[in-house]
């Protein structure tokens, strides 16, 4: 098991190098520069700015310097916010995005698994149809519709939660629910079908035959097998959750790193774009690894050798 993790971690390095090099070149191919401005910048000032960020050197040298910085954990300086390094910008925004994603994930897992189990256990009853109907709605409602609707009800009609901004747990509730609902719905459907798949398995019948109480059968035996599809889905889901937080963070003015995905590219803030690419690549690669590990823990049939 440990050997497997170490091997996989070592395998990440070349993948990451290729991602960094490719994105570095692609962002440079985009026309325009970070210092393009409506009001022309005087040439000597422009030369000074290019020199400060090293943009006046050959591209290969810039790439090598970037790799050098990366090794030291230095992601460079932002051109848009000259007072800040990319490290600081990410350190400032990441906690908010992580908190938002965690709340969304808890909401998605809690609600999704509960609804899925209930529907599976009460298959083809009004409970099942009702819950799956709501799940269908959750899957079809995009966050840019759900978000404003929730804000309208909870923030502007009943004044119980703030319609945006950041500060305390109160501020994370609406964006968390908005972000998590799609996944809650999807997880509910996955859980339901996973549970229905194992309901006729021998080990479930065995558990029942032993005379175990129904809730033990469902929670201890069925759920463990029934959740496998959810676990497979969890890796990409968490990744998606963090990427899709762009929209939700904009709607609720959450100071996370989501919006940089789009804004940094538009501003040609080269180092910030790279910083975000590196962060998300590492995150996605690690999530995939985690899913593989979790798979083995849940399914006794899988061995890492």
């Amino acid at each position: 098991m440990l050997g497997f993790v170490v091997r996989r971690l070592l395998g990440l390095v070349p993948t990451l190098l290729v991602i960094v090099a490719l994105s570095f070149l692609v962002i440079r191919l985009a026309p325009g520069s970070p210092f393009e401005s409506e009001r022309g910048i005087p040439p000597e000032v422009l030369a000074e700015l290019n020199n400060k960020y090293g943009f006046d050197r050959p591209l290969s040298e810039q790439l090598l310097r970037y790799f050098g910085g990366l090794l030291r954990g230095d992601l460079g300086l932002s051109t848009k916010y000259p007072q800040r390094s990319v490290n600081e910008i990410i350190a400032d925004g990441l906690p908010a995005t992580l908190l938002l994603a965690s709340v969304a994930l808890c909401w998605a897992l809690g609600l999704g698994i509960f609804a899925g189990v209930v529907s599976a256990v009460r298959q083809n009853t009004a409970w099942d149809h009702g819950l799956m109907g709501i799940a269908m709605l959750g899957i079809s409602l995009p966050s840019f519709v759900l978000g404003p609707l929730l804000a309208l009800v909870f923030a502007l009609t009943f004044y119980v939660l703030p319609p945006g901004g950041w500060g305390g747990l109160r501020h994370v509730v609406l964006p968390g629910i908005t972000l998590g609902s799609f996944y809650a719905a999807y997880i509910a459907r996955l859980t339901r079908s996973g549970m229905l798949e194992v309901v006729h398995m021998d080990y479930v019948r065995m558990a029942r035959a032993k005379g175990l109480p129904e809730h033990t059968v469902v929670l201890r035996h069925m759920l463990r097998g029934g959740l496998l599809p959810v676990v497979t889905y969890l890796g990409p889901a968490i990744a998606n959750l963090m990427v899709l937080s762009v929209v939700v963070e904009k709607i609720f003015a959450t100071p996370g790193i989501g919006p940089y995905f789009v804004d940094a590219a538009f501003n040609r803030d080269y180092f910030l774009v790279m910083g975000i690419v590196v962060l998300y690549s590492v995150l996605l690669l690690c999530l995939n690894l985690l899913v593989d590990v979790a798979y083995g823990l849940l399914d006794p049939r899988i061995r890492y050798d």
């Binding site: 319609p163 945006g164 003015a253």
Partner: peptide
């Protein structure tokens, strides 16, 4: 407060 979205600004103003 720093808020990009004009719609969010409007909501926060209203509240």
């Amino acid at each position: 407060s720093i808020i990009d979205s004009y719609n969010t600004v409007l909501n926060m103003y209203e509240a």
